[in-house]
Design a protein around this nucleic acid. Structure first.
Lengths: 153, 153
DNA sequence: CTCGATGCAAAGGTTTTGCACCAGG
DNA sequence: CCTGGTGCAAAACCTTTGCATCGAG
């Protein structure tokens, strides 16, 4: 078990939550790839492999909710795609999501946070930087699109 | 019929698209409140009132898709809430969405666009500024949350 | 033993799709 | 006419909820 996963489990224990097979497996998955961009479905699949038995979707969602309530993780909304889960212990960052291929690129918070915070504050807002994704096109897909645009002529 | 709505209809005609009752009504709704933040359901409801007959959801979605493909509108993803439709002719802006009350505040593009563009470019991304929302808390909800935090003690 | 967590089933809300029919140009 | 647009029905998709049962502490 990864150190991160163990930390997570211990944290849950200290919160007075029960350590079940499903939860341990989910923590394992999250801890194994702390900087991955996993959906609930991904996590469920991998967690099932870890323990070799079925875990219900509802269990996954409820566990993730619990973990998020306690501040151990966040989720973001990458456009149309399903929500992406995100460990809080990992250095926080913004997300650039490619609308074409779904690729997600991380941008260190300090590159954008101060700017966003300032502008938001002027409009009476407190920005929640870890809860949204910036949409756009990655270099590859942007290039493909330009090629296509030039092609037909 | 608002001028904006008429422009939209004319634009559709010039694209060789057919002007149906449903489409005219939808254009009417969009043109009537060009800077509103409407969901597909809102648009459907209002469009039905305009013509007094039923319009199917699928028709609304297909019409909006068509309009978006041709560049007459955009949609954004305000977190968990349904997608929000947005006329392109209106001065474009970023959106701050309150996670608690759903309120949406507009931020002129020029306040953020250059900053976002620069950072995104460093990561090989071309930002699509009109296709996402920045999440956070509006002043009112942030205040309510702080009161609640202080209350129980 | 007790309460919290699970699985199962069902529903929720939004958006998409297939198909036969209708109507715009 | 003829093709594109519509309504209807059904499904897809992600997520949430109710309820009886199970198992961690």
């Amino acid at each position: 078990m990864s150190e991160t996963a163990a930390d997570l489990v211990n944290a849950l224990r200290e919160e007075g939550l029960r350590i079940t097979k499903a939860r341990r497996a989910i923590c394992e998955v999250l801890g194994a790839a702390p900087d991955a961009h996993l959906t609930a479905a991904d996590i469920r699949e991998q967690a099932q492999e870890v323990i070799g038995t079925r875990i219900d979707e509802s269990t996954v969602y409820r566990t993730l909710d619990t973990l998020e309530e306690r501040g151990y993780l966040h989720h973001i909304h990458p456009g149309h795609a399903p929500g992406v889960i995100h460990l809080s212990v990992v250095a926080e960052h913004h997300h650039l999501v490619c609308e074409d291929c779904g690729r997600i690129v991380d941008v260190p918070l300090d590159e954008l946070e101060p700017l966003l915070e300032g502008v938001a504050a002027e409009h009476g807002f407190i920005i929640d930087s870890v809860h949204f994704a910036l949409m756009g096109r990655c270099w590859e897909c942007g290039w493909a699109a330009r090629m296509k645009a030039f092609g037909p002529e």
